[in-house]
Design a protein around this nucleic acid. Structure first.
Lengths: 218, 218
DNA sequence: GCTTGGTAACTAACCGGATAGTTAAACCGA
DNA sequence: TCGGTTTAACTATCCGGTTAGTTACCAAGC
């Protein structure tokens, strides 16, 4: 198969580019990551990026779709119809946390997407984000109609879950990575340092689930 | 008083610079906001920024200190010793939300500060952030020791409150500002659009307090 | 099987514009 | 007129994007 090999090659190149871009966009943000840098990290000439993907914005949208799309897939894959709303919520939260675990660049990239309120997002990426929220909305509404959950602002619940997991994973990463922040804090307030050191390493998904269920259950 | 007048003048100039910088850093992030742009927005020559404040990083630290410091002040100012832990938590959340209300650039700036896990933060700014967390920690510990709150991961509570308020205010701003995202969503999923439209405008502080208290109370 | 022509994939070099930071001169109130 | 303050003008660098040219690959013709 001749055309097949070429397509494989193309997919491989695009994969390298998007992977490198994901990492660098996550590290430095949209403006902070340069196309030159991304090309170097991907082991590819800069013009190759423009040939295969498009301009910087197109590249960013590809990263978002790649990252957020995989989250949707992971969350949906774990949900099953014959779960109670409580179980579904736990599954939902665990799904988000797991995706983040396997894909560390996700939080900052996703946060920036929510941060901008969807401005400048492609239809495709917007649909991904809407879907993640829509799934949660369905769970919450089912819970309310079954008398299991109290009535709440679903968007706020969404932001609390996402914010807690995203922030936490992100802080954890930098906390474990460069110890400079940790060292500074120990110097600033040793007692508080110990408490943070202990609480950062706990399992996020479980604790977030526990708290959200306590907050929501009737 | 000659020296006094000069000091006033200096403070005024620095104030103009920091205010403009706060707005632009919030809008476009660190790399996205240029020093030229900030100078123009402040009605000041670029060299004046370097004369009074320092380089771009120094300017960013000044913005962070200004913004986060005022949050600390506002939150501390509203707390009083003879409140129950429940009341204190509500006051804390309202304090954060109020500061955000009066100072819209705060969320994105603060988020970016937490996002980086404290990397590259000046001692001063780090102290501010630690203080905000420290206050919450005190409230939660008092609640636990009085048997009012369950034992939790305080850092996660911190992130949930901050994440919910910061994200919400930020999304609200862009949602109300440019309606492009809203229009896109209406086209994508009209039913979900209505639900979002309704839930975004609610009072955040009250709802967050309600949820957090439900989650924490024994 | 080997040459050959064509096309997809890739690259080095370059361009205009923007950016952070500097300098030396001008300004102006006391 | 003196010193803190402000400014226009400048430099070096970097960035996003383009172009013209090269290589890798594959299919068809002999």
């Amino acid at each position: 198969m001749p055309a097949k090999a070429q397509q494989n090659r193309q997919e491989q190149t695009i994969g390298k580019i998007v992977d490198a871009a994901t990492r660098l966009f996550a590290e430095s943000g949209y403006a902070g990551a340069s196309v030159d840098e991304i090309a170097r990290a991907a082991g590819v000439n800069k013009a190759t990026i423009y040939y295969h993907v498009g301009d910087k914005d197109k590249l960013y949208q590809s990263v978002l779709h790649d990252v957020i799309g995989s989250t949707v897939q992971n969350v949906v894959g774990n949900l099953s119809e014959n779960q109670t709303p409580e179980e579904k919520l736990t599954t939902y939260i665990r799904g988000v946390a797991e995706t983040v675990e396997r894909y560390p660049p996700l939080p900052p990239v996703m946060m920036r997407a929510v941060e901008t309120g969807g401005q400048g997002l492609s239809q495709e990426v917007a649909a991904d984000l809407v879907m993640i929220f829509g799934i949660l909305l369905g769970i919450l509404e089912e819970g309310v109609s079954r008398g299991a959950f109290i009535q709440t602002n679903p968007f706020l619940i969404y932001l609390m879950i996402l914010g807690a997991i995203a922030f936490h994973k992100n802080v954890e990463a930098t906390w474990n990575g460069s110890r400079s922040a940790a060292r500074m804090l120990r110097q600033l307030d040793p007692c508080l340092f110990d408490k943070l050191e202990g609480s950062i390493r706990k399992d996020v998904a479980e604790e977030v689930s526990r708290l959200m269920l306590r907050a929501l259950k009737k």
